[in-house]
């Protein structure tokens, strides 16, 4: 019989998971922003939202992290590597688009070089997603062949039951099964049916757009200039995106000693591709926006057979000038025969 996790048992679950050494993380609103943050008790969660402002990405790929400490002496250079921090974590209440965003990046971080900073965190983290029962004008998972109840990247999928009193438990991976075995006695058998997932209308025909992007003739199309003319070139879309993964390496310190850090970087910035000579192969904002779209829907799928977008819609939702992936792909759809 299906099991449900009752909302009033959530504090017991948190306690149980914490006592076995887990950090429990979930959507929390603090200083007027919602993000995935550690909690002590269930009342800190903010679960009744479409999705948190910041994506889940930072739990696996922080905005900034030290990777190396160095000191230069006369005859030698001393270096100390910082290892990725260790610790089991349970993320409760992730959105399916965030969970799938993380799964989309797995092949990237394990491709030619295995990024232990990413994978250690991945291996030690259980993602418990909650299927969406509400969506807003910017949600577009269904246009990316995903859904408000996708299981991609989730270890457990919870489906809300009527009245907000709990969730129907769907075990997806062994890691999820193990995490929920420790709270098995807190679950109840139930025949209740879940609330249907949110209706998210399809916004564009992805396959047709991808064909257009793949056509080399369209690389120099005037379309790119027209669609991005109002782009102001900030990194809001890339930094809020659960799948944008670019980073920069920075040495901070003086001539003789310092710390090497791995920081988020963005293809929206002119500096991103600036050569030492001063030449910039992507010298205009339209070339930079084209790169972002091409990377997500042409280059990345070509290499990893995955779309580099989970349809969370944060790029459009937060854009200072109301741009985003949805509008661009919708406009491409209009160019199709």
């Amino acid at each position: 019989m299906p099991k449900i996790l009752s909302a009033d048992k959530l504090d017991n679950c948190i306690e149980r998971w914490k006592s076995s050494g887990n950090t429990v993380i979930g959507p929390v609103r603090k200083s007027n922003i919602s993000a995935y943050r550690p909690v002590e008790k269930a009342s800190e969660f903010e679960l009744d939202i479409v999705l948190p402002d910041l994506s889940i990405k930072e739990l696996f790929f922080p905005q900034t992290e030290p990777i190396l400490k160095y000191a230069i002496r006369k005859q030698a250079i001393d270096t100390t590597e910082f290892l990725p921090p260790s610790g089991k974590r349970i993320v409760f209440g992730a959105r399916p688009c965030d969970a799938s965003g993380v799964a989309i990046d797995d092949p990237l971080f394990g491709w030619d070089y295995r990024d232990e900073y990413w994978f250690q965190r991945r291996n030690e983290t259980v993602i418990v997603s909650i299927a969406c029962v509400k969506a807003d004008d910017f949600c577009m998972c269904t246009s990316l062949n995903l859904a408000p109840d996708s299981t991609m990247g989730s270890d457990i999928l919870l489906r809300p039951i009527n009245g907000g009193k709990g969730w129907l438990v769907e075990e997806i991976t062994d890691r999820g099964r193990d995490a929920f075995a420790s709270i098995a006695d807190l679950l109840q058998e139930s025949t209740e049916s879940p609330v249907p997932p949110a209706a998210v209308p399809e916004k564009f025909n992805l396959e047709a757009c991808v064909e257009w992007l793949k056509n080399p003739e369209n690389f120099e199309s005037r379309f790119w200039k027209e669609i991005s003319v109002r782009c102001i070139g900030c990194a809001s879309c890339t930094y809020l995106c659960p799948t944008c993964h670019c980073f920069d390496i920075q040495d901070e310190g003086d001539t003789y000693s310092g710390i090497r850090r791995k920081n988020w970087d963005s293809c929206s910035f002119a500096l991103f591709t600036m050569h030492t000579s001063g030449h910039n192969p992507r010298s205009t904002q339209s070339a930079r926006w084209r790169q972002r779209i091409m990377h997500k829907f042409n280059y990345f799928p070509g290499k990893f057979s995955l779309n580099k977008c989970s349809g969370c819609g944060r790029c459009s939702r937060q854009c200072p000038v109301d741009m985003g992936i949805t509008e661009t792909l919708q406009e491409i759809s209009k160019l199709l025969p």
């Binding site: 200083s31 910041l54 930094y239 963005s266």
Partner: peptide, 16 residues
């Protein structure tokens, strides 16, 4: 300190 701890250095403030 609390407010700036949220800054993600996207430079949207500057670009806008």
């Amino acid at each position: 300190q609390d407010e700036f701890s949220k800054c993600i250095k996207c430079y949207a403030c500057r670009q806008a």
